[in-house]
């Protein structure tokens, strides 16, 4: 039981953390919570199964093509669902536009790919102590979080992202290419979401209906970890995965979801800004 809780719990927790980072990266340059995050995760699994499983491409090529396609979908999201509503952020029209694009992607995938789950092929011919379906999401999560830390703290591009996130107008006044950086961040988010779906394909399978699961459970670490806080998202994501799997064993079935959302609500009541988020400064 403990082995199963740890293996499934950590793997799914890493996937939720990656989805949370996807939300955060898109949010950082646009102040938009794009609900295409779940669609990007779903497409990571579908593209991986398509390129490697159906078309028979080598795993490395399939992996790179998957990331490339998901990056492209990320850019399309910025053009189609985000840019048109940026001028009226206070009306929260992005909720509608990003959800609409997500539904379109989901339905298109159902029709063109399959309405039932499809197998995700083995990526590597060997396992590292545990099966690849369990260690790959955890490794991907570690690489992404390490990479994001490096990007934000040790590169000009990352600092530019942070500058835009901090004050969009001031960053533009300083001459930062805000539009280009925003497109870049959506491409990056696409790759991270695709990576989450690709590495969890062995667990979630290549299935169009994975979108709501990834969207909802991916958003929980964002809220718990503090909006825009990738470190918090990782801690909250892993905790969520472990708690979900433990609840699955302890209370079972659909009650596991009830347990998760009960804890989620209690946590947010205790710390509305998220467990790792700073309380927002109030202008006076």
């Amino acid at each position: 039981m403990v082995e199963s809780i740890l293996s499934y719990g950590l793997a799914m927790g890493a996937v939720y953390a990656l989805m949370a980072v996807t939300y955060n990266v898109m949010f950082s340059t646009s102040r938009v919570f794009s609900f295409t995050a779940g669609a990007l995760g779903m497409l990571g699994g579908v593209f991986g199964a398509l390129f490697i499983g159906r078309l028979g491409l080598p795993s490395g090529v399939g992996f790179l093509l998957t990331l490339g396609c998901c990056a492209l979908i990320g850019v399309v999201t910025e053009f189609v669902a985000v840019r048109p509503v940026l001028k009226s952020l206070d009306q929260h029209l992005y909720v509608l536009s990003t959800l609409a694009l997500t539904l379109m992607i989901q339905q298109f995938t159902a029709i063109e790919w399959s309405t039932v789950p499809q197998p995700f092929p083995r990526v590597l011919p060997f396992d590292l102590f545990v099966r690849e379906r369990f260690w790959m999401p955890v490794l991907a999560c570690a690489v992404v979080v390490g990479g994001m830390e490096f990007l934000y703290r040790h590169s000009m591009v990352g600092r530019a992202f942070l500058a835009i996130a901090e004050d969009n107008f001031a960053a533009r006044a300083l001459g930062l290419p805000e539009r280009g950086l925003r497109i870049g961040s959506y491409a990056l988010a696409g790759m991270i979401g695709g990576l989450a779906g690709f590495t969890s394909g062995g667990i979630l399978l290549a299935f169009f209906a994975n979108v709501p699961t990834l969207n909802f459970y991916g958003f929980v670490p964002v809220a718990l970890g503090g909006i825009g806080n990738n470190r918090g998202a990782v801690v909250a994501g892993l905790a969520l995965g472990l708690f979900q799997q433990a609840a699955n064993y302890l209370v079972g079935g659909v009650f596991a979801s009830v347990a998760i959302f009960s804890v989620f609500i209690v946590a947010l009541l205790a710390a509305p800004q998220g467990l790792f988020g700073a309380a927002p400064a109030r202008r006076v």
Binding site: Y8, I203, L204, T213, Q245, N248, Y249, G252, V254
Partner: peptide
Amino acid sequence: TAVVDANAQDVTPNLLR
């Protein structure tokens, strides 16, 4: 008796029970 999430990733607990 159990009603399981149609997208449940791990059904080991149900079968063990």
